[in-house]
């Protein structure tokens, strides 16, 4: 039991990751695929954030009387990663708009030519 409770943050990460991954693979709609990809990436953000936590430490803002801070570096890293994620999402959505214009659909099974399947 303690195995589950002690590592609950990882369980959340693993759950989110697998959910996102499953959506990417199984979704028929391209927008949903992008959403799945987002969930997948978010899980990794959670992984980073949770590992920066130092037991008993506060947020890494310099305040008088506080000695123990959490590690700020993962937050900074993940800020960058979030930017990358947003950029990826926007490129993906832009592609979807063009796919909709070109093919008239964003449902994978409605592409006529099997070569076009994603």
């Amino acid at each position: 039991m303690s195995f589950i409770l002690d590592y609950y943050n990882y369980w959340v990460v693993v759950f989110l990751m697998m959910t996102g991954f499953y959506i990417v693979i199984s979704a028929n709609n391209l927008v949903k695929k992008i959403a799945g990809l987002n969930i997948f990436q978010t899980s990794v953000f959670m992984l980073y954030i949770s590992m920066g936590k130092v037991t008993g430490g506060t947020a890494p803002i310099v305040v008088e009387g506080v000695e123990l801070y959490s590690n700020p570096l993962p937050h900074v890293l993940i800020l960058t990663a979030i930017v990358v994620g947003v950029a990826t999402t926007s490129v993906g959505l832009a592609l979807i708009i063009r796919i909709k214009r070109a093919y008239g659909t964003v449902e994978e099974n409605e592409f006529k030519n099997s070569d076009d399947a994603i």
Partner: peptide, 25 residues
């Protein structure tokens, strides 16, 4: 057809990059 190719590339590529991110983490 370049659009669907690019989209497939984007999905695969992002998964790959995220895997690298997990590993580095």
């Amino acid at each position: 057809r370049c659009l669907t190719a690019a989209f497939r590339y984007l999905v695969m590529g992002t998964i790959g990059a995220t895997f690298i991110l997990i590993g580095v983490g």
